[in-house]
Amino acid sequence: MDKLAKGVGKASFLALSMMSMLAADAVSAFAQDAPAKQVFGNIALPSAGPSASYGSYAKGCQSGAVALPTEGQGFQAMRLSRNRRWGQPQLISFIERFAQDVQKIGWPGLLIGDISQPRGGPMLTGHASHQIGLDVDIWWRQMPKQVMSAEQRESTPFISMLDKSKFLTVDDRKWSPLNAKLVMMAASYPQVERIFVNPAIKQKLCQTWTGDRTFMGKIRPIYGHDEHFHVRLECPPGAPNCKPQAPVGAGDGCDKSLAWWFTKEPWATPKKDPNAKPPKPPRAMMVSDLPKACAAIAAAPAAGKASVAAQNSYTPSAPAAQVQDIVPQSSGKAAPMPPADVPRPSSRPSSN
């Protein structure tokens, strides 16, 4: 009888395992035929299992993501309703360390914008990147002394660093040497690969920064990014499934590649051929277009709710490597195209 019971138990276990596998396969098969942003944009919790990034910053996903706490020493997470404060442990550790370090230069604290979705992947709205848990947006607005309510985190407006009355010009009533110290300190961390800012902000740094310019080349000009700066970490060592970008070129980036942004070319309305056929609408990125592991990650069991809830309480990270102190210190040729590592917009930037 005991043998029979054990046999039935074993058979039941095998059947249950098989059903789970079939169910996962069914979800995976569905995901393969669905737009990736619909699949990943509607997943509320991270996958269980080890943390890893798969694919590239603009075409990938992540497993085992952890949430940035809603607030901690020197930071508060914003726009909580978006559910985009999930990243790889290396990124969360960086944010926590940076939030403490900025207080050494007099910045009161960081307001953290979007990181990534629970399992990464394309988003329903907004970013083309932020897909593998290694990107984070940091607001230019300083953190207030009080802990903001959830409602305040939704309604508090961004602050643009641009003078809206002048083309690509930083507003000196809002920008200060402290803003420059902040972004230059971020660039000084060895694990930071790139920082994206508005071209006007990059130009302002090129014109006014008198300190060490070793890390200036990491700061890249791009559309938008006047209300926040975008920090990107490099693929972690020993992460074979994370696709790195080409290294940032030599120099400080205060060259023709920056001057291109101040020509008409980046902002011109594309010319239309009246005799051309209407272009086909762009094809949506499907889950099958992502790395193969992403379909399985989309279908994987969620991390336990208890462990996820525990992440809302702040625990300081272990000290990171010492960050370097930041102390302030026309040829007639065709305008050059921006470097290959600078992402181009999916549509023409708005005028506001």
Rank of each mutant, 00 (worst) to 15 (best):
M1Y: 11
K6N: 12
V8K: 15
A11M: 08
S12D: 12
S17E: 10
L22E: 14
L22S: 10
A24P: 07
V27N: 06
D33V: 04
K37R: 13
S47K: 09
P50G: 10
S53E: 06
S56T: 10
K59G: 00
G60V: 05
C61F: 03
E71P: 00
G72C: 03
A77L: 06
M78K: 06
Q90S: 13
L91E: 00
I92G: 05
F94H: 08
F98D: 03
Q103Y: 03
W107V: 01
G113R: 03
D114M: 05
S116M: 11
P118T: 04
G121Q: 03
L124Y: 02
L124R: 13
S129R: 05
H130S: 03
K145F: 14
V147P: 15
Q152T: 05
E154G: 06
L162A: 01
L168T: 09
V170K: 05
R173C: 08
S176L: 07
L178A: 09
Y189A: 09
N198A: 13
A200H: 04
I201P: 01
P221M: 11
I222L: 12
H225R: 13
D226Q: 09
H228V: 15
R232L: 15
C235I: 14
C235G: 08
P236D: 09
P236M: 05
N241V: 00
F262W: 07
F262N: 06
A268E: 12
T269A: 11
T269E: 14
N275L: 06
P279W: 01
K280P: 07
P282I: 10
R283K: 15
R283T: 13
M286I: 07
V287P: 00
S288F: 09
P291L: 03
A293N: 01
A296D: 11
A302G: 08
G304T: 08
S313K: 14
S313D: 12
Y314W: 07
T315H: 14
S317N: 11
A320Q: 15
Q322N: 11
V323I: 15
Q324S: 11
Q324W: 03
D325C: 06
I326C: 09
P339I: 02
A340M: 10
D341A: 07
R344A: 12
P345Y: 02
S347K: 14
P349C: 00
S351F: 07
S351K: 11
N352G: 04
